[in-house]
Write a protein that binds this DNA or RNA. Structure first.
Lengths: 282, 282
DNA sequence: TTGCTCCTCACGTCACGTGAGGTGGC
DNA sequence: TTGCTCCTCACGTCACGTGAGGTGGC
């Protein structure tokens, strides 16, 4: 079992195109441990059989998979589990790239100066309490897209199972503090036509379970946002200024109502979202 | 000048969708400083006029522009300079996404198990010293693509100006240590037909200047790589094993020769690169 | 002896995020 | 007085990168 069978870090680095410092890091992180470490010198030696693993790690890192996930892939019990972990990450990457694409579009619109950045009409209205199916979760800012993508299908399926029809477009409540802290609790809901008497009592704050509940009444300042979600901040800025200038802001969650979503159209410009800011009772 | 004109961090956060902690960070980094800071409480207050700036910053960060570059955009002397900074970043982003796309393809090929990962033919040959135009630089691993993209056009232009023709395909020398340290000095070259006597003496190691020089002779083990650059490590692994197994490795830079490049074909599978490992004189 | 490759620490970087402990106005 | 929003500091995170100081075999 001569040294000819093993590679030094420098050799392994040239063979895999992974920098030595990165190999050190992967060793320390338990991701890619040398086949042998000389106990007296501390020299790392890698086996030829580790080359495919190193190549896989390099490719997974190139698509920005976190080290913890890479480790999970490497220690997957079987090939199916491994491929599933990779597929899940590629799906997330796909969404990330879609997000980048719309951010680029948004940036270019901001620069080219979308003729007039569109002054938004703002109206006030009283939203009554309404029965709904709802789903709440603790969600980070950058995971809100995927979270909604799984939440609304579940909600609409639940509506179907209740044997009723949605009574209005779906929406979501963003806990006050959601934007300030870059995430927090979100409540996605779909209003349904149920007499209030038949409403099942709200089961505490069970996360990740669809439940029947009552959307609280609120007085709201409402702006209609036209276009991609990436530009929602433009509408929030106008709506928020309107409310703050008049000193009519009230406590409570911000609310969005999804009138025309990516499920309804492939053209971002056709999307419509109502943005609602809680205000005092006038 | 009442408070009605200014926003607290919390308000500004909701208006811009930038988390408070991020606003703190941008303040500290001098990127987006509050219009006013209450000297007694330390409270930050933002002016309505800062909303467009904040929106721009948010969009630039969404496309992963480094904070230093964002700062440069914000302090650009005029609109042209600003737009140029943004355009440069978008171009870099485009290349990054292209890289990700080819990394995904490479990963999938690795998994689906590209029937046989192609055993590569390896030959030995003596490469004689040859006159060339050359350009050296200190380049990081992840900047090698863009660096080459500007290097070779300059080299071929220089060849034209010398009134000669390239005598062989262009290539590059990667200083020993380049892969081990994740970057270092690279020398891109294009061989030319000049009698050795007419060769202008090499002007030291002037970086970033095209110069006439002599490519050193070397004995090389050579493997022909077929396909995308993203898969070069597969060929390096086979070539390196061949050399290390036989104990014939010699000191000196690794060499790549670009036979068919993205400039010659749009099909990655048609690309051809010779990978050369220095070996002893047999 | 000189170079070369390897080693270990400790600290730096980038862009924030977390959390403790405390203040100030309604 | 209770909540709420705001503050500062110090430290954590992620995936390495930098650099000092030192070892070991040809």
């Amino acid at each position: 079992v001569g040294m000819a069978e093993l590679f030094t870090v420098g050799e392994f680095s040239r063979l895999t195109h992974l920098p030595i410092k990165t190999l050190h890091h992967y060793h320390e992180a338990g991701l890619l441990e040398p086949a042998m470490v000389d106990p007296s010198t501390g020299y790392r030696y890698y086996a030829p059989g580790q080359l495919p693993t190193a190549q896989l790690v390099r490719r997974l890192r190139e698509v920005r998979m976190p080290l913890a996930d890479v480790r999970a892939v490497l220690t997957a019990p079987d090939r199916a589990a491994r491929d599933e972990g990779i597929a899940a990450h590629l799906e997330q990457l796909r969404r990330e790239l879609a997000g980048t694409a719309s951010a680029v579009a948004s940036l270019q619109a901001l620069l080219i100066g979308d003729p007039s950045p569109g002054v938004v009409d703002i109206s006030h209205r009283d939203a009554p309490a309404v029965a709904c199916v709802e789903l709440s979760g603790t969600v980070d800012r950058d995971e809100i897209g995927p979270w909604c993508a799984q939440a609304y299908p579940r909600l609409y399926r639940a509506v179907g199972q209740l044997g009723v029809a949605p009574s209005a477009p779906g929406g979501a409540l963003y806990s006050s503090g959601w934007f300030e802290e870059g995430g927090g609790t979100v409540l996605a809901y779909v209003p349904v036509d149920l007499p209030t008497s038949s409403v099942v009592p709200v089961r505490a704050t069970a996360e990740d379970r669809v439940r029947v509940g009552t959307l609280p009444a609120a007085r709201l300042a409402v702006a209609l946002h036209t276009g991609d979600f990436a530009d929602l901040d433009m509408t929030y800025a106008q709506l928020g200024r309107h409310v703050l200038d008049r000193g009519i802001g009230a406590a409570g969650p911000l609310r969005e109502i999804y009138l025309i979503t990516p499920d309804d159209t492939t053209d971002p410009a056709a999307m419509r979202t109502e943005v609602c800011w809680p205000i005092t009772g006038d």
